[in-house]
Design a protein around this nucleic acid. Structure first.
Length: 234
DNA sequence: TGCCAGGCCGGGT
DNA sequence: ACCCGGCATGGC
């Protein structure tokens, strides 16, 4: 029986654990098709979206992004030059607008100072160092950093979010209180280290979560992972 | 009406 | 090293 994907570094990785994660991916992909995330027109918009969607429904973040685009501010220069208080008003629909305005300012300030405001230049930095730099910014935590790394900078890093924890714990595959890094390492050690796989795997998880694993709402009926529950028996 | 959404920070223990 | 209150709008 599966003992769960605990992420302990001493744990041996069996071929069946790897196969299980790949099977889960296969079933999600059969359900939703390839998703080729992230929904954005440019790598910089990915970064903006990653900050604006923190603990917020994507539809709300998308509204704020549309407002920014409409105000012709959805660019490194645009965010850099606009007054922070004015920026906050533009992104009101995304919630936490004062905090997020500051976080966007922090991000572009760093991007300008370190990489001449150039995402491609940023992306040439090796993954471990770039991840540490992002995490050092106030307002960029592990999930936001990994989203930027994976979907804007094309780094092969696995993104963990609320859906990942909820889906995999609901199916008895991880502890409910597993930390971010435990979950991330668990996936990264078991899965082939391929950019396209990491990219689409997280996208499939979010799609699965939105359809079948909200806190309230539809149970697992029709969920691509529903078959995993049969062995639980309460 | 109240709860929830693709987190994170800062201060306290 | 954890724990918690705060942050805020929009949808159901």
């Amino acid at each position: 029986m599966n003992e769960g994907l605990t992420g302990k570094t001493t744990e041996k990785i069996s071929t069946t654990e790897r196969a299980l994660l790949l099977e889960i991916y296969s079933r999600m992909k059969q359900r939703f098709g390839p998703l080729h995330w992230w929904p954005a027109d440019s790598p910089f918009e990915v970064c903006v979206g990653a900050i604006l969607t923190q603990n917020t429904a994507w539809t709300s973040a998308a509204k704020a992004i549309d407002t920014l685009r409409g105000a012709d501010v959805l660019s490194v220069r645009g965010i850099s030059e606009i007054e922070e208080s004015e920026l906050a008003q533009l992104i009101r629909p995304s919630g936490y607008f004062n905090q997020k305005a500051k976080r966007l300012k922090t991000f572009v300030g760093w991007l300008n100072g370190q990489y001449h405001g150039d995402i491609r230049e940023m992306s040439r930095t090796p993954l471990p160092r770039l991840r540490k730099e992002l995490l050092s910014l106030s307002g960029i935590g592990p999930e936001t950093a990994d989203c930027i790394l994976l979907y804007a900078a094309n780094k092969t890093t696995f993104v963990v979010d609320a859906y990942t924890r909820r889906i995999f714990s609901r199916h008895g595959l991880v502890a409910k209180d597993a930390t971010y890094d435990e979950l991330k390492n668990s996936f990264e050690r078991r899965l082939p280290r391929r950019l396209e796989l990491f990219n689409d795997y997280h996208a499939q998880i979010v799609e699965t979560g939105k359809h079948y694993c909200l806190k309230k709402g539809p149970e697992c009926e029709g969920c691509p992972l529903e078959y995993l529950l049969e062995r639980e028996g309460t």
